[in-house]
Amino acid sequence: MTDSEIMDLYQKRDEAAIRETQKKYQRYLMKIAMSILGDESDAEECLNDALLAAWNSAPADRPEHLSLYLGKIVRVKAIDRVRYNTRQKRQGTEYTVSVEELEEVFVDDRSPENALDDALLREALQNFLRKQSAEVRMLFLARYFYYRSLREAASLCGMSESKAKTILFRTRKKLRTFLKKEGFMP
């Protein structure tokens, strides 16, 4: 079934939409959830939450790319779950490893006067990524959006792990400089 046909089912509030979504994207979405959560039962629950969210939001949204739309929902749900889990016990997944890498980028300044507008941050981050080469952009997203392991991310981008590691290190450093320059951190 095409994405468009599945979206039609969502908009008609036909529950077959969920079945068709699972049939087509279950494995892709589970991969994202598993990369973040590292636990199959958590990932399955997260996937169910994501499908429910898609069901609830689909009448308003008609995304151009259904896979990416669903992937983003799963990512949000899985991160919510891992944040909850991490409060109780630190998890050893690609998510936590990737997040530790990203910690180089920011200073955790929680003072109210430094609270920033999420939309502006998103815009700045997009501008930053648009200025990078396709190779850098791919690698950044593979590692920090999809939470692929360094090895998988390198492979996706057709490069060696050492090269990927170097590029990511430089990119995080550049991002930190960029965000400071844009006023997102002191």
Partner: peptide
């Protein structure tokens, strides 16, 4: 900036 904000922005 909180790290969660950056992660959410991504």
């Amino acid at each position: 900036m909180k790290k969660d904000q950056l992660i959410d922005a991504i």
